[in-house]
Design a binder for these strands. Sequence first.
RNA 1: GCAGAGGUCGCCUAGCCCGGUAUGGCGCCGGCCUUGAAAGCCGGUGAGCAUCGCUCACGGGGGUUCAAAUCCCUCCCUCUGCGCCA
Length: 423
Amino acid sequence: MLEMAQFRDSPAAIFADLERRGLDRTAAETVIAADERWRSLIDEGNKLRSDRNRISREIGGAKKAGDDTEPLLEQMQALKSRLPQLEQETAAALAERDAARMRVPNLLDEAVPQGDGPGGNVELAQHGDRSDFGFEPKSHNELLETLAGADLERAAKIAGRRFYFLTGGLARLELALVNYAVELLAERGYEPVVPPFVMNREAYEGVVDLGDFEEVMYKIEDHDLYLIATSEHPLTARFRDEILEPKSLPLKFCGLSTNFRREVGAHGLSDRGIWRVHQFAKVEQVVICKPEDSAALHEELLQNAVDLLARLELPFRVVEMCAGDIGTVAARKFDLEAWMPSVGEWKEVVSASNCTAYQSVRLNMRYRTPDGTATPHTLNATGIATTRTLAAILENCQRADGSVAIPKPLRKWMGDAEALLPA
RNA sequence: GCAGAGGUCGCCUAGCCCGGUAUGGCGCCGGCCUUGAAAGCCGGUGAGCAUCGCUCACGGGGGUUCAAAUCCCUCCCUCUGCGCCA
């Protein structure tokens, strides 16, 4: 959510940004109109309440002095008949303003490339080597079967499609990936945190696009609770309504959770296996910092993610999201896309976002400055998302005999095994 | 889950019984003093609208009242004890 000062002082910048995104400006216009209405109503209400308080004090004084209070009580009646109506209108104007404000996206960083969809994204770098297998590479889904690494049918029987049992070596490999990511990030100063896996609606509205409630999050029946879609959400919302001490910044966390996603409307051949699932473990990087530090820390988050994939020797590329594909919350976003040989495509495994003040404003999170308070920036990036990284390992590390080489940094958590063997 | 006690400004705290301008301390910021610092003294230190100033804010919501931190109802959270439990 943008600051009201931005709507009041520089609406042109907001309109220009919406233009870049190819979005219409009605929500922003509603914010500005409702805000003006709210301000004049609040002013009127304040004057009315001021009179009320004054007369109330006079009544107190008159009673003490033993004077007649009847004329004052009559004045009060006249005043009070107008207040409820006015207060209702004021609340309605504020509600309209802020509902519209929630729908206005973050302002884009100047560096964000133009573009109206995924085609406009810009490749910045490639890492690793795409193997020349010398045989027809299997899909990760086929490999899960030959390695007996997952049981999708029975998972569907008890929970539904897009759920899975990870079994044997794959289960251990998931834990290895989690340990590997936590170890690297902890060494680099990111405090590991296991958050609540559910959040209430009010807290959740601070960190996501409102459409996500219908498209992404599972709601717990009969409770005001939603399963988290990523640990970014509780980690960022954690300091909601708080004033942070500047010397504690930047806060650097490494979130550790299972994530739950409804994936409404998702479909497609390439989504088979464990690529797109309702539940997966993820080690997430989260940073809360001063605005002047966020660009550099965004680079740091990206570098951490690059190192994590590079040390696994996976082939991947770095892509910058364009204006038409970046989404509501981020001001700038990079994705890492792993090469998937079975389909011959780059596919998203990591996303690193600088959300600038957008989440902090919604969360009412500030930090202390010499003059008062200021709004911090929030950033997040994947460390390792287990299922997609597992899929990328399976496909890229497969060998002619059907075995899959275990990336060296993971072996110490796999009993020093060198490969996963066919069942 | 049951019972009791609590929730007041960044932190701590008075006020609540008995309704009438939110008390004091700590921390922080500024000033005075000082070679510099500490101590001491003075002032500032929640939010909104507004070019004096006004309004709102005592966990959230509602009610009673001319007037609510204070009285009533309700919900949330914390602590203590009991119960249940990996």
